[in-house]
C-alpha cells in the first residue's frame, strides 16, 4: 500500500493530498519531483490539484510534458494505479492517459463550492468501497472543469462504464458533457476527477465522503 505524490511547480493541493494519504493509508507517500525520470515502487501514484505552470498555454499542458509524466505513463502501462485530481485530471488528459479534455467552465467563473456526486461505477479499483448510485458530497474548486470529448469517445466511455462520477441533483458546476465529473481509463487503473475527495475525509472537514475512495485505492492493492 505504498503511494507516491507527484510534485510540479504551481500545484497547491499537494499538502492536502499528502495529509489524506498519510491519515488514511497510515504512512506518508513518497514525493516525486517533476524532473525525476523514475518513480519508486509504489501501488498508487497521485497527481494533486493546483495550477501547474500557472495554467499557461492550457491547464496541465506543460506539466504533461515533464519527464516525470513519462515515468507515470510507464507505471500506468504496468498496471500501477494512477489518480489525478483537478489539475491532476487535466494533466492526465493532456498526457494522453485519459480521453477528452477539460475546458473553461461554461459560466466562465472559477467555481469553489460543494457539489453532489453520484457513483456511476462502484466496481473500479478506486470506488469499490462505495455502492453504485450512492450520492456523495464533495468540494470542487476549478476554472476549467468542463469535460469535453467528441461524440464517439463519449459514447464509448459511457458504454464501457468509464464514467465513474457524475454531478447530480443539478450541481454540475461547469457545464461538462453528461455531467461527467470523473472518468477512468479502459484498463481501469487510471482515474481522473475534478472534485477534491482529499478535502472531505474527516470530521474537521465537515464530512468524510471522500474517504472510501482512498480506502478503495489503498486497501485492495497487495
Amino acid at each position: 500500500m505504498k503511494s507516491a505524490v507527484i510534485l510540479l511547480p504551481g500545484l497547491n493541493r499537494d499538502r492536502d493530498m499528502i495529509a489524506a494519504l498519510t491519515k488514511i493509508g497510515g504512512k506518508p507517500p513518497v514525493t516525486v519531483w517533476q524532473t525525476e525520470t523514475e518513480i519508486p515502487d509504489v501501488d498508487l501514484i497521485v497527481i494533486p490539484g493546483g495550477f501547474s505552470y500557472g495554467d499557461y498555454l492550457r491547464c496541465g499542458a506543460i506539466a504533461a510534458r515533464m519527464p516525470v509524466l513519462d515515468a507515470v505513463r510507464r507505471k500506468a502501462a504496468q498496471g500501477v494505479r494512477v489518480m489525478g485530481v483537478c489539475n491532476g485530471f487535466q494533466i492526465l488528459t493532456e498526457a494522453g492517459l485519459l480521453p477528452g479534455a477539460l475546458m473553461r467552465n461554461q459560466g466562465l467563473k472559477f467555481v469553489c463550492r460543494e457539489v453532489k456526486l453520484s457513483v456511476e461505477n462502484a466496481e473500479t479499483a478506486f470506488t469499490s468501497h462505495y455502492s453504485k448510485g450512492q450520492v456523495l458530497r464533495c468540494p470542487v474548486a476549478h476554472h476549467d472543469g468542463n469535460y469535453f470529448a467528441d461524440g464517439e469517445t463519449i459514447d464509448r466511455i459511457e458504454a464501457n462504464g468509464q464514467v465513474v462520477f457524475r454531478y447530480t441533483q443539478g450541481t454540475n458546476p461547469n457545464g461538462s458533457i453528461n455531467d461527467i465529473a470523473g472518468i477512468i481509463n479502459e484498463a481501469g487503473n487510471v482515474l481522473g476527477m475534478m472534485p477534491h475527495p482529499e478535502n472531505l475525509i474527516e470530521a474537521a472537514h465537515g464530512g468524510n465522503d471522500g474517504r472510501p475512495l482512498f480506502e478503495s485505492a489503498l486497501e485492495l492493492v497487495s
Partner: peptide, 9 residues
Amino acid sequence: EKLLANLVI
C-alpha cells in the same frame, strides 16, 4: 502536434 495544440479540441 506535441504541445502547442491539443488535437482533441
